[in-house]
Design a protein around this nucleic acid. Sequence first.
DNA 1: ACTAACATGTAACCCGTTACATGATTAT
DNA 2: ATAATCATGTAACGGGTTACATGTTAGT
Lengths: 181, 181
Amino acid sequence: MALAHAIMTALLEDERSGYELARDFETSLGFFWQASHQQIYQELRKLTERGWLDKREVRQRGRPNKMVYGLTAAGHAGLAQWVFAKTRTQAAKDELLVKLYNLSADNASHLAGEIGERRAQMMHLLYLYEKIRRRHYSAPAALPTRHKGVYLALTLGIRQGEQFLAWCDEALALLASVAAR
Amino acid sequence: MALAHAIMTALLEDERSGYELARDFETSLGFFWQASHQQIYQELRKLTERGWLDKREVRQRGRPNKMVYGLTAAGHAGLAQWVFAKTRTQAAKDELLVKLYNLSADNASHLAGEIGERRAQMMHLLYLYEKIRRRHYSAPAALPTRHKGVYLALTLGIRQGEQFLAWCDEALALLASVAAR
DNA sequence: ACTAACATGTAACCCGTTACATGATTAT
DNA sequence: ATAATCATGTAACGGGTTACATGTTAGT
């Protein structure tokens, strides 16, 4: 049931189309919750049927028309209530760590390659995080309450990301010493 | 396809029954990959049919007999090959962070409560990690290669966990300042 | 003509979760 | 008796992924 509420969260400030939501789920909120456009369109239909969203067509010039969705009063209420529901603890699953349990001289350089890739991806992500932090969250104490929550999420992302980079370096050093040449 | 390989990874050193595997997936390998007994029994059947595992019955006194599963040569080979396959990047999904995007004076103390719970869970997990590290990984340089991989996974778990604790404290401080009284 | 970005959907499949089910043995 | 631990399964459901599908407009 979390996808529905993630979508509504994304609609808290502006109304948006399915296409725009799909794009948002690749950044911003998407740092902490991902969804494909196939999921999103399905969920938008369900949420509209349930009366939590309403939609209207927006005519555009120079591109196809779009349907934009916004929260109804019922949607706002449902979202606010959801925050108070008990959160199921998140499962940390990572295939790469399972692979590390199979470390051998043979596969060490392959695993180092994969960790190197992850490291590069994380560098890119941290760059995006930092850009957002500098632009929108440079004075956290002055933020409106809701944005302080976003700031906290962002802070966790940055800290965990930096920690991950440091771990990658340690792992790469150890793997280099283990690899067959 | 990761569950199958996680199970085989758990069988690398000893053969085990479904029940024992289910228990293991609550600790050790289970720190990085979880599975319920329902999943495990299904997967054991499939893996046996595929010829990657074989099973034999072990008669026990004082408790029900059990079926123990072990890797076949084909299973070993399949597992070794899997390590070289490209790992799909892991999605970080956390409902609690999405909830933080909905922070308000009303829900701040509830969210603080949930973060406090997470903090306590992580403390417990770190305690388990540390116990294992002290017992089995106090001299990482002397470990056999495969265990060095396990050590790396454990190290990541510990570092991320400690980082998470620090973040919880920061978050709790901010939430306290926001909460309505 | 072709590519890229905009825009929206359906269908099949796989995997994980929840619920349901059964039965042995030991300890209280 | 009854609870706890050991031990093994089936079935239904729901959510996420992959594949399939279509159509517009702008730019090269």
